[in-house]
Design a protein around this nucleic acid. Structure first.
Lengths: 339, 339
DNA sequence: AGAGCGCGAGAGAGCGCTCTCTGACCCCGC
DNA sequence: GCGGGGTCAGAGAGCGCTCTCTCGCGCTCT
């Protein structure tokens, strides 16, 4: 009960009978320290229960030893992002890859212009060395803000605008092609697709990739209905397609939620899945396991992608001159009941 | 391009022609400053593009202005927690409630003893003022560690061990009673339940609450099968119950995942839901929407609970002498197709 | 043997901020 | 007219740490 204050480096130095500088060297693992001193200091650290004050350290080194995980989106939409299990997978990948380095991501929500400005100043305040940006909208201004501020940042998904920034992404076209291949291999000949919003690059890529793959398989024209990645929009799109193309026998939905919606409508119209109509989704999300039949879907290695994103940021932090890098991951098909 | 360095308080003071102390007062909104000085400083802040260095501030105030969101669990299990949409809801609630105060939570994973120790020292390093603990296991040592270290912390869910710590929780018994009431109201007379792991207090409470409510309704004995909150365990438990009590007409599962598993088995045994057997889940999780029929389930106001958790922590941080507080939330029944 | 050099430890100057303490100034009352 | 008290700005001492610079020591090389 002598000291309310936690021990400082000064205390350790005194206990070890060395200077503060030497204690600092030992703690930071500087090589040029005599073994005798090293062990004295090490003992003193244990004896005093010393824990370095990283705040003081940050002040002089100008490194926070922390990074921000910024969740962006249009007004209020970040709520959606958080509710999505996809987000949890991203977090999981990031955290795992950061854990060995003992850096922990700080969650910053940026779903309004004010919040976006705050996110940037958060980093400028010195609370983080760089940022990981997870953004839903392609016209997001956030990547630009970070680039302008000269803050090291890495994006999850290719930026919508042409911004010189590093990012990780999935080979969406290739994923869509896997879906096309599967449908064709199952014997589907009249295939349709439910696309995502046209302002989302990933949705566009999936549509393009699917069309091209189907063209390679000989189906030149693929009917499209547009959804917005929700269950309801998938159902609506499916109903439309069914009305216009009653003879369809295969559906590729740009995400699982829409595929689940499509499934409901197909049941209502008494089409069996995968007997009458085969359905392929995208994302391998949680819901894919709970539909009847379970969804065959294109999976992305979200955790790995997130981990790589963190790794790239760390690299940039070490070497500030680093050029924008990108890492594109390959999707794979998860075959369940629906196709 | 004159200065690579961001402007400091010193620069602002110089630009405004005042002392650093006065500039500091203006920036921190101290009342005893002449209006003329105030506006001069305000102008200088804008002119210089000054952003306070919170690291330096933290060093002297000994306040980080940040809090840690610690995800605990047994070895490696934190991965599971993160993948659960439930986690996203917690994060969402926490972030929302913290946002107006401009504090952002830092995510710390603590799914090993080493990681738990790190989590504690993370806060002791001065990087956070307090912690929000989300723990799955009741025998988690983490709450104890934080209490011992004298770190302000609030738990999501009642601590398993008897630890003097604040927490938010759900009235689980009451939620189970809602389920019982619903089943009885539907005319179920031979009701069974699938319980969660006995080392999880919430699971125990749900079981107890369900039994008591059924007793009130006249069914003195409720057959129980135990699961571990997974889909498979729910299916297994349902199969057991069905074998022993072929005439059962109502099931309460302690979470939605197990309810979904039960649904699968019921289908296999050609029992219609809710015609032959009514099923009620717990949590109102994502999967509840994707089962056939959709699950009737007991919902907890997770976001509100998380927000309150953050609020309690903030209160503790302002008033260090604060006693442990708890906030218990009421569940409500979400009626869908299964009961 | 003396000069030069490398190695490792200590001294001390900050990093950018807050906050106490000091002191200048003004207003009031006697 | 002068002392007392109140108000508000400035000076300066740190917060705990890192890191450069200095210096002493012992060794090698000529």
């Amino acid at each position: 009960m002598t000291s309310k204050r936690p021990p400082t480096l000064e205390d350790v130095a005194r206990a070890a009978g060395v200077s503060r500088a030497t204690a600092s060297r030992v703690i930071n693992g500087v090589a040029t320290v005599d073994e005798a001193m090293r062990s004295k200091v090490a003992a003193a650290v244990v004896a005093t229960g010393y824990i370095p004050n990283t705040v003081a350290r940050s002040l002089v080194t100008r490194k926070a030893g922390a990074i921000a995980l910024v969740i962006s989106g249009s007004d209020g939409s970040a709520e959606q992002v958080l509710g999505d299990p996809f987000f949890g997978r991203v977090v999981s990948g990031v955290v795992r890859s950061l854990l060995p380095r003992k850096v922990h991501p700080t969650l910053v929500l940026a779903d309004s212009d004010a919040a976006r400005a705050d996110a940037v100043s958060y980093v400028r305040q010195g609370k983080a060395d760089g940022a990981l940006l997870v953004s839903t909208h392609s016209d997001d201004t956030l990547p630009g803000l970070f680039v302008d501020a000269g803050i090291p940042a890495v994006l999850f998904a290719r930026p919508g605008r042409d911004v010189p920034i590093s990012y990780v992404d999935l080979a969406h076209e290739q994923g869509a092609a896997l879906a096309a291949d599967r449908l064709v291999a199952r014997g589907c000949r009249r295939v349709v697709t439910i696309a995502g919003p046209s302002d989302v690059p990933a949705a566009q890529d999936r549509l393009t990739g699917f069309r091209q793959a189907m063209a390679r398989h000989g189906q030149a024209y693929v009917p499209v209905a547009k959804g917005n990645f929700t269950l309801e929009s998938g159902a609506r799109a499916m109903a439309e397609l069914l009305a216009e193309h009653p003879d369809l026998d295969g559906v590729f939905a740009a995400n699982d939620l829409m595929a689940a919606g499509a499934l409901t409508i197909l049941h209502q119209h008494h089409r069996t899945v995968p007997g009458d109509v085969a359905v392929v989704g995208f994302d391998d999300s949680e819901p894919a396991h709970f539909t009847h039949p379970q969804l065959t879907t294109v999976a992305q290695p979200v955790e790995e992608m997130a981990a790589e994103m963190a790794r790239i940021l760390l690299t940039h932090l070490q070497d500030q001159t680093h050029r924008p890098t990108s890492a594109i991951f390959d999707p794979h098909l998860v075959i369940r009941g629906s196709a």
